[in-house]
């Protein structure tokens, strides 16, 4: 068949190039903020292995988010913060991160029990957050200084009190793939520096190694990954 010198193919390539550049610039300007509609992997900042493998490289990703985001104009701006504390039976830790009337919470016992929960904060400061397998957190924000409530998980009800946490206390999460295993770790850094964390390897939970609360760096199976502060 005879072929004309047609501009169509060139235009196709050009359109693809423009689309790619447009999306890339969109990402470069907004990409650091996690999309709010992500539900399955909420504020988890996926840390890809390889390019961020070196400990020196992961160090600069310092957890600066919690304090910077508090300049929100929302009426509950004062409440926008991280709250961290322990359950009444002292078995587990609970952390809640509030931003703009939305909340994400993490419950973990530091061994094998954990749950990520999320939901909205009502005008009166109450919240009902839900997680997988029917997990539920009912809490009330008191004077913008602490959250008091209960967590229902695995047939148990845990009462908890979480006080307003100041950096580096708060809630951290890291996801990555290390040696073929999907890693998903959550850490609660309590006021005073104590840490409670659970690390999932391909869905199998275990006690998490300590993170450096200043940089979020943590070594998992020989590889350094970075845990990032969690926001809803």
């Amino acid at each position: 068949m005879t072929r004309m010198k047609r501009p169509g193919p060139l235009l196709t390539l050009l359109a693809g190039l423009l689309l790619g550049v447009f999306l890339l610039s969109l990402n470069a300007t907004t990409g650091t903020r996690n999309a709010s509609s992500a539900q399955e992997e909420p504020p988890a900042t996926a840390v890809s292995p390889g390019a961020t493998a070196g400990p020196t490289e992961s160090a600069p990703a310092s957890p600066a988010a919690p304090s910077t985001a508090s300049a929100s104009p929302s009426r509950s701006a004062a409440a926008d913060a991280d709250y961290a504390g322990r359950t009444d039976d002292d078995s587990s830790a609970v952390a809640v991160s509030l931003r703009d009337d939305r909340a994400i919470a993490y419950f973990c016992d530091g061994r094998d029990k954990e749950s990520w929960l999320k939901g909205d904060v009502e005008d009166d400061g109450t919240m009902k957050l839900t997680g997988k397998n029917g997990a539920e957190l009912d809490g009330t924000l008191q004077d913008g200084r602490r959250i008091r409530g209960t967590v229902d998980l695995g047939g148990h009800r845990y009462g908890f009190t979480a006080d307003k946490a100041v950096k580096p206390s708060g809630l951290y999460r890291a996801t990555a793939t290390v040696r073929g295993a999907k890693i998903d770790g959550g850490w609660i850094v309590l006021p005073g520096g104590r840490q409670v964390g659970v690390l999932d390897r391909d869905g199998r939970p275990s006690t998490a190694p300590r993170i450096d609360p200043e940089t979020g760096a943590v070594t998992v199976d020989g590889r350094t990954i970075t845990a990032k502060p969690v926001t809803p």
């Binding site: 999306l23 969109l26 990402n27 907004t30 990409g31 650091t32 996690n34 999309a35 509609s37 992500a38 539900q39 399955e40 992997e41 900042t45 996926a46 840390v47 890809s48 390889g50 390019a51 961020t52």
Partner: peptide, 13 residues
């Protein structure tokens, strides 16, 4: 790698 980028509403990830 940024680890994250835009998402489209209505999708889980």
């Amino acid at each position: 790698p940024a680890g994250t980028a835009f998402n489209i509403a209505g999708f889980s990830s």
